[in-house]
Simulated scan of single mutants.
Amino acid sequence: MQAVTDTVKNITDTANHAAQQLAAAPKELHFGELIVKGGLVMIPIGILAVLALVIFFERYFTIRKASKNESNLLQQIRSSIHSGNLESAIAICRNNNSPLGRMLQKGLLRIGRPIKDIEGAIENIGKLEVSKLEKNIGILGIVAGIAPMFGFLGTIAGVIKIFYDISMTDNYSMSVISGGLYVKMVTSAAGLFVGIIAYVGYHILNMMVDKVILQLETDAIEFIDLLEEPSK
């Protein structure tokens, strides 16, 4: 009987010890819980993140569409001009509905004037088209700058609250300090993450625009050369 009692006691002690270990084990961090514990500052950071993603993808697909190879367009225009069919060349540009098409259409409408006037018209339309491509890209640069600031603001506000609570309770234990601080550091991490994403997206889009500008300039030069061919 005593042996049975000792066995039951050992089992009970083992179970209690295991329960204590489970209770003492650190809880697993969940992303959603951290976001919620970050406080109200996470709201503007989240808005900035959504804004940055929307602008990036909208501009990315717009610029990508504008950067497609238009060598076929130039070939069609060359064929129409050589055959003396100017109206057909203008209609081809109008139906193309691309930055290059609009630039060349303006140049074709100026045929008969000095070549400098044609170059100026093409250049002006090119500037307008580039301005359209760059629309809202600057906002990504702003997001890249202010998102980390919001993150630091949230962390500083959290630290202030932690030390205020300590001053009220006289509880200087490390668990109290670290327990609140790691949560407040979430805002800094979130702000930096959004800022990095916006910064990278900003420079990717700018590089894409630069590539489009180079291609438009190259095609515009080829078009001017085409107009000068009969006079050579």
Rank of each mutant, 00 (worst) to 15 (best):
R113C: 12
R59A: 00
I11A: 03
L133G: 02
L216V: 07
E119C: 02
V143D: 07
A3Y: 11
K135R: 14
G179N: 03
L100N: 03
L227V: 04
M207H: 15
I221A: 10
D117N: 12
F193I: 12
N95D: 15
R102E: 04
T62M: 11
A189G: 10
S88E: 13
A121N: 09
V54L: 11
A220F: 04
A18R: 09
K127F: 13
S178E: 12
I63Y: 03
S79W: 08
N124E: 10
G38Q: 00
T169K: 06
A198D: 01
D165V: 02
G38P: 03
L53N: 08
N124Q: 14
N10K: 08
G158L: 01
E33H: 14
S188N: 05
F61N: 12
K232F: 12
S83I: 01
I146Y: 05
I204K: 14
I63E: 03
M149K: 04
I118N: 02
L51H: 11
Y172Q: 03
I122Y: 01
I204E: 10
G112I: 06
A15L: 13
S98T: 15
G145F: 02
D117W: 07
G141T: 04
L48D: 05
G126Y: 10
S167H: 08
A18S: 11
M149S: 10
V143M: 04
V50I: 15
D6Q: 00
M149Q: 09
I43G: 11
G101T: 10
K27H: 06
Y164W: 11
G101E: 06
M149Y: 08
K161P: 00
K9F: 12
